[in-house]
Write a protein that binds this DNA or RNA. Structure first.
Lengths: 128, 128, 128, 128
DNA sequence: GTGGTCTAGACCACC
DNA sequence: GTGGTCTAGACCACG
């Protein structure tokens, strides 16, 4: 499939998996009705314990992105797309909020802040 | 002193304390030669375990922001101001980097990203 | 035939099938001597794995509701009606018992409980 | 503390724990600001694996009933009482709904239904 | 084959 | 001492 796990960057693995599934839905790489890879399959692909994948999937169920089809697997729900887009904005907004607070507390000026953002946005390349 | 501790926001308390001391130095709210509050005093003021304050101060000593004066307490070093400003930029840069990566992975456009930043920057007010 | 399968509601599909056959007998929609649809036929009609239908029918045979007629298929037994009505009461009683226990544990009052029941009974419409 | 676990009644253990905590909040046996028993403590008391308790507590955090205090434990949130009461009604309503649907599908009459309920409510005694 | 639950035990950061 | 994460492996019901 599509994503990269970094086991040592502070973000829990199950969380990385869950996020990327949400993003995949938001970007229509995953569509309503599709089955996601099985727990075991994804676990071996990512070289991760099946329980870790299961936990990510459980989170996605609680959030209404996936539903279980008994004996078949996990399917992307109809509401997933809509939710994921709201979700995405909310999540990013929250993360941005934390950085902004941190920056304001640190006392840097608006100009410095935006120039930092610019510089980082331009230098970071991310595998999509 | 001047700052706010939030014990339930994921950032370790000792880290919150250390950062805010560094920022205070960067903003010249704390100047070279000044004594910082004693561990006990600050601990009771912040309603926090003294070990936690001690750990923050230890970090600040290791980073060269504070030095112990026998029988007096902890004093802001001469190099603190200079270091704190470099430090601050590096720290913020790193946090921004994480958010940018997250945003790029999520697939939002550059325009959306900047408009989110703008919106948050304008709405957040922080006690300095 | 007459019924609806919901593959994502926690109740096993084979169980849903078996129950509804029993209820059909209890309500005389199915009478002694009638043939039920073949496993394959019902499976395709319900868009379900044939094994699942077979398992439901097996259960119904074990419970004495169906009997195999060589070369013909499965027939509703003579005792089915009588059994189904006893069965039905016992089944419902058990389900009600669980809800009552749950409600009592939750600490709601008898009045609240009955008003909830009333409200739900009046609002639910079920295709028979 | 307060509750009983039945490891063989179909309801997952972690779910039983989570529910009973919610009910305890709804009934004011647990109040905002109180610490719940530590994961390890409750685990040994219930003769259950710590992970199982941890999972229940995690669910309660996701639902906003508990919050972690680093190094101290888990605390009942301010919003917990309000939420728990809404939650309780919704949960029971949902369970009742399922029974009502089942009953209507089975074809029993309203009179029979209510007499079943009555009979069960009166006979069940539950340790509070 | 699928997911769900539970146990056991290790390691981590934090207070 | 606290909770959080992860691994490993077992067992179950379902299709």
């Amino acid at each position: 499939m599509f994503f990269e796990i970094n086991p040592t960057n502070g973000v829990p693995i199950f969380e990385q998996i869950a996020r990327q599934v949400k993003y995949a839905v938001a970007n229509k790489a995953l569509r309503a009705g599709e089955l996601v890879p099985s727990v075991r399959e994804l676990a071996t692909k990512l070289a991760v314990n099946p329980n870790t994948v299961a936990r990510a999937y459980r989170e996605l169920q609680n959030d209404g992105f996936l539903e279980t089809i008994r004996g078949e697997g996990l399917r992307v729900t109809k509401q997933a797309l809509e939710r994921s887009q709201k979700h995405r904005t909310k999540l990013l907004q929250e993360r941005i909020r934390l950085v902004v607070i941190e920056s304001k507390q640190s006392g840097i000026s608006e100009g410095e802040f935006y120039s930092l953002i610019d510089q980082v946005w331009k230098s970071e390349v991310v595998a999509t």
